[in-house]
Amino acid sequence: MTKESNKNKILIVEDEFLTAKFFEIKLKTKNYDVLKIVATGKDAIESAITLKPDFILMDIRLEGHMDGIDAAKEILNKIDTKIIFISGYSENNFKEKLNNVNYLSFFSKPLDINNLIDVLKKC
């Protein structure tokens, strides 16, 4: 299977290593270029600015004091990218906070990776 778009650079922001690793390997099998895996909001911002990914898979609860939504806001202020939130919480938990964020999609864990790939493909 090959990807349909030429946007293929992905930054994974996930503090669970095994989960992040699975996403990385699975995406790579689908010909996506996983630029980096980071576990904190701060690293996410820095990596995003530096690597300018097409997509950022963003967990919400992260290591450190900054959560994924705040990090996404910062990143979106600085670069043009698409944010896909992946969280153990549901979207409703962050309804108000997410109002000011322009994000592509929200997936609740455990994630069916095929659904994620479908979203990526459409962009």
Binding site: E16, T19, F22, K109, P110, L111
Partner: peptide, 12 residues
Amino acid sequence: HRTKNNLQVIIS
């Protein structure tokens, strides 16, 4: 959250 996260980890 923890339950779902853990499920995600196991599935991963």
